[in-house]
């Protein structure tokens, strides 16, 4: 076969006429980062609420939290993406559905919400594991001091649990960054999508995917280094060995 290598392709203008292919790839990287950050913010907040719900004494809260986790963990991400993007607007009232469809950057919002919920389920499991790894005495001590249960969670249990699960949260964030690529199926021009578009329009398959691969590796390294610093700050003195007890995917 005859493949025409052309590494200069990156500096040629892409189809929009103004940006080079390299610029479109960096735009893709930008969308990847933006989507991952926004989605993960949702995941952290929602995941904490659900995680707390799973350890709460009320059976009603436990059951709804468990249902949330089971639903978002047991349906493939791509299927969830389609449900949010194609199915949700159809079951809403017509006007609300039309409004959703005609939002500018609808793909971005859909991807953020979808990834947010998907990772919230995983963060919830991590938070729960963190809470459960604390000794019972902590909760009792908090309540013995006259704190209410919500106060005990807010001031005693959660601050401790968060510091323990930082490594697991890191790996969750890494996987969230990678999962943004699934959004190309609904038309989000994130990094993989940008590389695919470059391949389709310039026919330089290997150059396009090599560039995307390099950018993902670089992004990964940056995140790992940044999070390592956070992990260093978060270590609970004297709690070292128990950290390993909590593992998340």
């Amino acid at each position: 076969m005859n493949y025409n290598w052309n590494w200069w392709i990156f500096f040629e203008p892409s189809l929009d006429g103004t940006n080079t292919y390299l610029t479109t790839l960096f735009w893709g990287l930008g969308w990847t980062i933006a989507t991952a950050l926004c989605a993960f913010a949702i995941a952290l907040v929602l995941g904490s609420v659900v995680g707390v719900g799973r350890t709460a004494p009320s059976p009603w809260m436990q059951r709804s939290a468990t249902t949330f986790v089971e639903i978002f963990r047991n349906i493939p991400l791509l299927v969830q993406m389609f449900l949010w993007y194609f199915v949700l607007p159809e079951i809403l009232p017509r006007d609300a559905g039309m409004w959703m469809k005609q939002l500018p950057n609808a793909q971005f919002y859909t991807a953020v919400i979808c990834l947010g919920c998907y990772h919230a389920a995983r963060v919830a499991e991590v938070v729960r594991a963190g809470l459960e790894s604390l000794s019972k005495g902590q909760k009792m001590a908090g309540q013995a001091l006259g704190l209410t249960l919500p106060q005990t969670y807010a001031y005693v249990l959660l601050p401790m649990a968060y510091r323990i699960v930082v490594p697991a949260i890191t790996s969750e964030f890494l996987s969230c960054t990678k999962n943004t690529s699934v959004a190309l199926a609904i038309g989000l021009m994130e990094l993989t999508g940008a590389a695919r578009a470059m391949q389709e329009n310039s026919f330089q398959i290997f150059e396009a995917f090599t560039a995307a691969t390099t950018l993902y590796l670089a992004l990964n390294l940056v995140i790992v280094f940044a999070m390592r610093a956070v992990e260093g700050l978060a270590v609970v003195p004297g709690y070292g060995n128990r950290r390993n007890a909590v593992k998340g995917r």
């Binding site: 890494l174 990678k178 690529s181 699934v182 190309l184 995917f209 691969t213 993902y216 590796l217």
Partner: peptide
């Protein structure tokens, strides 16, 4: 480490070609 840093979608495209 390399493969774990890449999204599966990208890896699927890579290998398919």
């Amino acid at each position: 480490n390399v493969l774990r840093s890449l999204p599966l979608v990208l890896v699927i495209f890579w290998f398919y070609f």
